[in-house]
Nucleic acid binder design. Structure first.
Length: 835
RNA sequence: GCGAGAGUGGCGUAAUUGGUAGCCGCGCAGGAUUUAGGAUCCUGUGCCGCAAGGCGUGGGGGUUCGAGUCCCCCCUCUCGCACCA
């Protein structure tokens, strides 16, 4: 066999050497400012990637996967004529960094800059189109000055407040843990059982925005999975608050033993109601007892003397439980308080219990138990021998109490044993009963959210100090904006301790300050704020990075925000993305932003596993990008990451498979170097080229990077299959298509093709439908729905011609016995003959 | 338990959205070149079968001329949330 593909040895081009090419172009980009964004340029396009936490291990392949996908999008938008802004920074504050610093015994002020330097090196090797002039780190006082400013804006608007809250406390590490750091009731670091503590904490009133955060989702161009996660997290439920009067119980107002003031020993008393939240007001006739959370404030007063001992013991046990253990499904427990309340629908007295399956944080901390129609109440009633009457049936005759399980049908069910509402459907009865009770002041419709206010206090060291000063005379006083930043002191011993207060409380010289209002001695807040506050506004900062006078410049912000495209991991579907939306809304309401949603478009990328298993240090299967970049080149590595699976789903990283992508780049390299300018391009090749342009142009904005790469590989195979040198016109557009994926190689090949400016300023290849059109098509021929062969016919051929061609094909014709009963013809695609 | 998503060759994946299942890549087999290895190039590669043909997209049923795709039931896996009244 003769091999005419390769030109004679003398003409062989230099082999593709990625490390040389990549070094050359990274230097040249730097020199020429190729990646610098002119913020006043035309058609601004802001593409954002979730900034990394600079870990000591260095860049994770997952980071690179995320960033490469963003970078391709940004480079593509630039080639389409936008001025693209693609910034990157470091989310370097927080418990991760601090814990690591503790572990290795290096102070974070030393460790973090070292990690950032390593990240910066790795990121630059990856060839991202990032304008590093706008790089930022959340640990920089010039940044967190404005994080503190942001806190003050919320404080000013009454959206930041302090209250006692339950927190997770690890007795071994002597620190507060976030809920995410508690795994099955144990500390994620040391495995110690976590305890519950009550500490004074700063909260943001995100619940005030629950409705808007939910409603706006409908209008956002975001991944559906992310929107669903936010909807579930916000957890809207529409129901009613119902009042149950406590029997024979009065709350005494005023004092029976009034001292002075001419009190006459008069006693005023008012009846006490227990308010419950329910979404099933229709079942009130079946409410046979009430259950209060153990912490419910009324429990203390309600409990009868006979029940006191048992109730107190139960409450004490509940208080000892940590938050997580309490939430796992377990057998129902509870105690009767000895008190009774009146069911407002039946007028009958019902028992009041306490049980830890009722949560104080949700609704009113009290429920009406309807054991016939709620699984949890059923289980509880079962355990304590309480009745489970039926008030909703499959039909009007279905009146016997449920025996095996609660009957929870809430749409088609019909009311029974609930005169005068018998016969109504559940939805009808909900309205009717709430209206009926409301007339007597015993009900009001209520919308409940499961979203809680955002606790931003951290009793830790490595974060921005919360800018508040406590003064005995003035109370809590915000630090004046002109005095920001409140700089984090260089504390030698930053280890958290058992005291439940931040290590900053050890630095007396730091926390003792005069009150900003009255000048008397006062003390600083020693808690720092949550890392999620740092990241809730970083996208506002980038275009104004370096500005000392404002958090974000109004003019620049008007031009560059909201963000056009945001791509990131779905692990931030709720926290970071929800907090960012909240902060943006607050700043909008404060008149500081014109928009209330920060990210016009968000897409969640997938995750990468390795050879079928999750990557983890313990498995020892973590990909170190440096090794791969070294061996295959950044371009091949980037392209492989984009090729290994659908970007929004992720995929399986297999070392062997990179070679295929590298071969593709080698073949591309050879084709460009062999290209000739004489003569005409081949029509069939040009047809395939334009089909490829169409495919890649459609696929990139849809993030279908893997199929775009497959299409380009197919085209290269076509180029190489012809026993001729390719024409320059056949390869130049391919270099442009490849450029977002393999930017260094593309620049080099673009130069080889005679261009002196960057391929990223050379536009995007135009698709020509006429050139892409096929003149003949392959039509599948089926007989009775089974494929029996294909025929080649002119494009847009009509049915009779195709049928005739099919009959002429012996392998098909032998199945066409007798006259066709029916013929289905799909133009250019398929002919199905039913005989 | 609830919510979201996914099950396709030996493997990673693709399928014009109801129209030839398996594009592209890895791997594998044979061949060319090479002192050898590597690299490169060519050919083949879903399964059974010498072939004709049959079978085939987690399992079972259905709709349709036609189903990976639509409908019903079941199984498995991944990721969230988890006593939210």
């Amino acid at each position: 066999m003769t091999d005419t593909h390769n030109p004679p040895t003398a003409e062989l081009p230099a082999a593709y050497d990625p490390s040389a090419v990549e070094r050359k172009w990274q230097a040249r980009w730097e020199e020429r400012g190729t990646n610098h964004t002119d913020l006043s340029g035309p058609r601004p396009y802001y593409t954002l990637m979730m900034f990394p936490y600079p870990s000591a291990e260095g860049l994770h392949v997952g980071n690179l996967f995320a960033f490469t996908g963003n970078d391709i999008h940004g480079r593509y938008q630039r080639m389409r004529g936008h001025t693209v802004f693609e910034p990157l920074g470091y989310d370097a504050f927080g418990i991760h960094s601090e814990n690591y610093a503790l572990k290795v015994g290096v102070h974070p002020t030393e460790l973090i800059p070292r990690n950032i330097a390593n990240f910066r090196r790795q990121l630059r090797r990856a060839g991202l189109m990032v304008d590093w002039r706008y790089e930022l780190s959340t640990t920089d006082p010039a940044y967190y000055k404005w994080t503190q400013w942001l806190f003050l804006q919320l404080y000013k608007r009454g959206l930041a407040y302090k209250k006692k809250g339950a927190v997770n406390w690890c007795p071994f590490d002597k620190t507060v843990l976030a809920n995410e750091q508690v795994i099955n009731g144990a500390c994620e670091r040391c495995g110690t059982q976590v305890e519950q503590r009550f500490l004074e904490q700063w909260f943001f009133r995100i619940t005030d925005y629950a409705g808007r955060l939910l409603d706006n989702l409908d209008r956002l161009d975001w991944s559906e999975s992310t929107k669903t996660a936010q909807r579930n997290w916000i957890g809207k439920s529409e129901g009613a608050e119902l009042s149950f009067r406590v029997q024979d119980f009065m709350e005494f107002a005023g004092s029976a033993t009034a001292t002075g003031g001419g009190a006459s020993g008069e006693v005023t008393a008012k009846p006490v109601d227990i308010t419950v939240f329910t979404t099933r007001a229709d079942t009130i006739f079946g409410a046979t007892f009430l259950v209060l959370a153990p912490e419910h404030p009324l429990v203390e007063e309600l409990t009868t003397s006979e029940q006191r001992g048992e109730v107190d013991a139960y409450r004490a046990a509940a208080a000892r439980q940590d938050i997580v253990t309490r939430k796992v499904n377990k057998e129902k427990t509870g105690v009767f308080t000895g008190a009774y309340a009146v069911n407002p629908a039946t007028g009958k007295p019902i028992q009041i219990w306490i049980a830890d399956y009722v949560l104080m944080e949700y609704g009113t901390g009290a429920i009406m138990a309807v054991p016939g129609h709620d699984e949890r109440d059923f289980e509880f009633a079962r355990k304590f021998g309480l009745p489970t009457p039926r008030v909703v049936g499959r039909d009007a005759h279905d009146t016997a109490p449920p025996t095996d399980a609660a009957f929870t049908e809430n749409v088609s069910g019909v009311l029974v044993n609930s005169a005068p509402f018998n016969g109504l459907t559940v939805p009808e009865a909900k309205h009717a009963i709430v209206a009926w009770l409301a007339e007597r002041g015993a009900a009001r419709p209520v919308v409940q959210y499961r979203l809680h206010d955002w606790c931003i206090s951290r009793q830790r060291y490595w974060g921005p100090p919360i800018p508040i000063v406590y003064c005995d005379a003035c109370g809590p006083v915000p630090v004046p904006e002109s005095e920001l930043p409140v700089v984090l002191p260089p504390l030698e011993d930053f280890k958290p301790d058992d005291s439940g207060v931040s290590p900053l409380a050890r630095d007396e010289a730091w926390y003792r300050v005069p009150c900003p209002r009255c000048g008397k001695p006062a003390r600083r807040e020693t808690d720092v704020s949550d890392t999620f506050l740092d990241s809730s506004w970083y996208f506002l900062r980038y275009p104004s990075a370096g500005r000392d006078d404002v958090a974000f410049d109004p003019e620049i912000t008007r031009r560059w925000l909201p963000v056009n495209s945001y791509i990131g991991g779905n692990e931030h579907a709720v926290l970071h993305l929800l907090y960012s939306r909240f902060v943006t809304m607050v700043l909008h309401d404060a008149g500081l932003l014109a928009f209330e949603e920060p990210f016009t478009r968000f897409r969640a990328h997938g995750t990468i596993i390795r050879e079928g298993a999750k990557m983890s240090k313990s498995r020892g299967n973590v990909v170190n990008p440096d090794e791969y970049v070294e061996r295959w080149g950044a371009d091949a590595f980037r392209t492989y990451l984009m090729f290994l699976g659908p970007y929004e789903e992720g995929g399986d990283f297999r070392d062997q498979s990179i070679s295929g992508v590298r071969r593709f780049l080698d073949r591309l390299w050879a084709s460009v170097h062999e290209a000739v300018r004489d003569g005409e391009p081949d029509a069939a090749v040009m047809r395939k080229l334009h089909q490829t342009i169409r495919k890649v142009t459609d696929d990139i904005p849809a993030l279908s990077y893997n199929t775009a790469i497959a299409a380009m590989m197919e085209y290269v195979n076509v180029l190489r299959a012809h026993e001729r040198r390719p024409h320059a016109a056949e390869v130049a557009p391919l270099v442009q298509l490849v450029a977002p994926f393999a930017p260094h190689a593309a620049e080099e090949l673009w130069e080889v093709l005679g261009h002196s400016s960057s391929v990223f300023d050379g536009g995007w290849p135009a698709f020509d439908a006429a050139l892409a059109a096929e003149e003949s098509v392959t039509v599948a021929v089926q007989v009775n729905g089974r494929t029996r062969g294909t025929v080649q016919v002119p494009k847009d051929a009509e049915q009779p011609a195709v049928l005739e061609a099919a009959m002429a094909e012996p392998t098909i014709a032998k199945f066409l016995t007798g006259s066709p009963k029916k013929v289905i013809y799909v133009k250019n695609r398929l002919l199905n003959v039913v005989v």
